[in-house]
Simulated scan of single mutants.
Amino acid sequence: MHCQPKLKQMVYKWLNNNHNCLLCDEPAHAPIPICVACEAELPWLDERCRVCALPLPMTGLVCGQCNRRRPAFQQVEAPWHYGFPVDALITRFKYHRQWPLGRLLAELLGNWLAYRFAEGLAQPTLLLPVPMATRRLRQRGYNQAGMLAKWLGTQLDITCDEHLLVRTLDTPAQQGLNARTRKRNLRQAFAVTDVKAVAGRHLALVDDVLTTGATAQALASQLLKAGARRVDVYCLARTPKPGSA
């Protein structure tokens, strides 16, 4: 079932040379619709865990959880922590169909990843969006992770496959659950549809926000069991540890 939105009219003229910033409505003077001032004020994630991107007080560290038990995924790449205005932009894109905001965030994430690849980060051969449960996909009408992955794939020239991962159990929404409940919620929730397509390959999961990492852990474990060589995670934002600033 293909539930991505069918655009009957142009929602935003992305190649317009006279962009206005989507955040402040001032002239952007840039190829994408965000001005230099607003881009600089985004909640950039500088000090973070080198593995899961958890916000930390210093750069170059590994958080306690990753030190105790290394996750199945190799590395998380997220340019921002989940703070204003990125949190509001993601919410408007994810729940209110404001797709130009998602397109802007995807473009900025793509620029971030291109910079990281130039720095030496290994580039995957395949992008895999985090799948949604069928019922939730029907209700919402689109998978925001699938849209992000397609935009990233086009920008970075990396193949995107929306059908290689499926959600086999219609589990309750992860939002509002604690870490232990999230892990229990996701047991046997996902499956790989084509084991041969992942064998020996470097893959990257794509999602909007990484919270506890339970979904990424469950999916990465399935992919490694299917023979994947390495699994990374690309997302727009990373939340802090519950209770921290």
Score class of each variant (00 low, 15 high):
99 W>E: 03
115 Y>S: 02
142 Y>I: 05
158 I>C: 07
211 T>M: 06
50 R>L: 00
37 A>G: 08
52 C>W: 00
214 A>H: 02
142 Y>E: 09
195 V>Y: 11
45 L>R: 09
156 L>P: 00
168 T>M: 12
221 S>E: 15
46 D>A: 10
148 L>D: 06
131 P>A: 01
169 L>C: 09
53 A>V: 09
46 D>E: 14
40 A>C: 11
110 G>I: 02
162 E>L: 11
190 F>Q: 03
119 E>C: 13
219 L>C: 12
236 L>D: 04
194 D>C: 12
220 A>I: 01
28 A>I: 04
192 V>K: 02
210 L>H: 08
97 R>H: 12
41 E>Q: 11
59 T>H: 03
58 M>K: 13
37 A>D: 14
142 Y>C: 10
220 A>H: 00
235 C>L: 07
121 L>V: 09
241 K>T: 02
111 N>E: 12
111 N>R: 15
238 R>T: 09
6 K>L: 12
52 C>Y: 04
22 L>K: 02
104 L>Q: 01
96 H>R: 12
173 A>R: 13
39 E>D: 13
97 R>A: 14
123 Q>C: 14
157 D>S: 15
128 L>R: 07
64 G>C: 03
9 Q>N: 07
191 A>Y: 05
164 L>C: 09
116 R>D: 07
130 V>H: 08
222 Q>F: 04
175 Q>G: 10
30 A>Q: 10
97 R>Q: 15
31 P>N: 07
184 R>T: 02
172 P>W: 10
196 K>N: 14
214 A>F: 00
45 L>P: 11
28 A>W: 05
8 K>C: 08
137 L>R: 06
73 F>Q: 00
101 L>N: 01
47 E>A: 14
121 L>F: 06
217 Q>T: 06
24 C>Y: 05
225 K>L: 10
63 C>N: 08
206 V>D: 00
103 R>H: 14
37 A>P: 04
159 T>Q: 14
221 S>N: 15
53 A>G: 10
21 C>W: 00
30 A>K: 08
173 A>Y: 09
6 K>G: 07
203 L>G: 08
77 E>V: 07
70 R>E: 09
2 H>G: 07
135 R>L: 07
218 A>V: 06
13 K>D: 10
184 R>A: 13
160 C>M: 13
143 N>C: 05
